[in-house]
Design a protein around this nucleic acid. Structure first.
Lengths: 210, 210
DNA sequence: GTGTGGAGACTGACCAGTCAGTCTGGGAGG
DNA sequence: CCTCCCAGACTGACTGGTCAGTCTCCACAC
């Protein structure tokens, strides 16, 4: 039908403004933080207008959430794909870590927003942060539980280990955001993965997953 | 612009007001975050007045800094002492981790401020945060370097490992702040220390340091 | 009276969010 | 092909609330 074609030729224009606002917001939030950023900064950076911003988003807060949610969704998909392609338990863990690190590397603005700029005030912000982190923890924990079942590692508190891993990865990325080291960030993938794996008693594969 | 130097009253009675303000500020900042807190919240919680607050502190920011600086200084001293009392390399590492975790456990408000509020607060606070974290990293790194020298562990990127440890400890404490688990927090000390030590290839002592 | 610690009303900058109005593309009717 | 018309995307000056920081006054001590 003509309808579908018409829509797809119509909406891109509309989507375009929304995207411009979102992209600019990512830059602005990343460089000034949520509270340091003023909606007019986003307006200016996006080359649109305040009206346009409030036409697409109900509040400054909502802009932030859209940004984070879009990014986390993408991240989850990327990880899922990478893990599917990987062989063996250790290979899958390596793929998961590598995907996280690589994604942060290619999206430093979003990495900053997710890891450093997340506002503390407001229950909504808190709840979402805890929930999203919890999801990630569950994924890693799943691998560790399987490793325990398969007798690859000793029985242990896999949830704790998952939190340790998340904290470790986050801190290493934060160091990179703050100091620029190592350059490129990808250089940490191999040694970082080795540290994480041996913390629970697993040995890395000879050739890490791509 | 007002260089109203932060006054430190000599009379112990007047020092009392300052302390009340600081203690209340810790509670307020911990529960609402820096930007979510309003100076009048601190005024109300401390049972003093705006005049008193601005008599002792130059700005809201300064209150926050005083809080963080006092706490970090105390923390550093506690760690130093605990490590001095400990025997052997592994024992010292165990003591350092245990001290950190215990201190956060007994000061949840300050833990929240240091681990959750501080990172998210704007650029003004970044420099100091990076520097202080760097110091902590250097301490841990020192232990690891010694372990490498003594051939207790393989040569490796000890700075990376130190960041991994810091991130891991922080994340575990944050989980406790968010979810209340484990109760008491001290229950993580032994398994957490084991994870950290084995990540670099060290075995824990039979009986962990007190 | 003079100094010190404190109270709390007040000010003014700042900024999220609004709204009355403009512009544009495209569809219906000629 | 050419109006005319409308929906709805977009504009930006404006508003109203908020809050850090100031100012004036007071109570009490010496």
């Amino acid at each position: 039908m003509a309808t579908a074609v018409e829509r797809s030729s119509k909406t891109p224009q509309r989507e375009d403004t929304r995207r411009k606002i979102l992209d600019s917001a990512a830059q602005v939030f990343a460089s000034k933080g949520f509270y340091g950023s003023v909606v007019d900064d986003i307006v200016k950076a996006s080359g649109t207008s305040k009206g346009a911003v409030y036409f697409y988003f109900e509040s400054k807060e909502r802009i932030f959430f859209s940004l984070v949610e879009d990014y986390v969704t993408t991240l989850a998909q990327e990880m899922h794909l990478a893990v599917q392609r990987a062989r063996g338990l250790v290979g899958q863990v390596e793929a998961a870590v590598a995907t996280l690190v690589r994604s942060f590397h290619t999206n430093p603005a979003l990495a900053r927003i997710v890891l450093l700029d997340w506002p503390m005030a407001g229950a909504e912000f808190q709840g979402k942060r805890i929930a999203l982190k919890g999801m990630l923890v569950e994924v890693l924990r799943g691998y560790l539980d399987r490793a325990v079942e398969d007798r690859r590692i000793d029985a242990q508190d896999t949830e704790l280990a998952a939190y340790v891993w998340i904290g470790a990865i986050g801190e290493v990325v934060v160091r990179w955001l703050n100091t620029g080291r190592p350059a490129p960030l990808e250089d940490v993938i191999v040694p970082l993965t080795r540290l994480l794996l041996s913390s629970v008693g697993l040995a890395p594969t000879a050739s890490p997953a791509t």
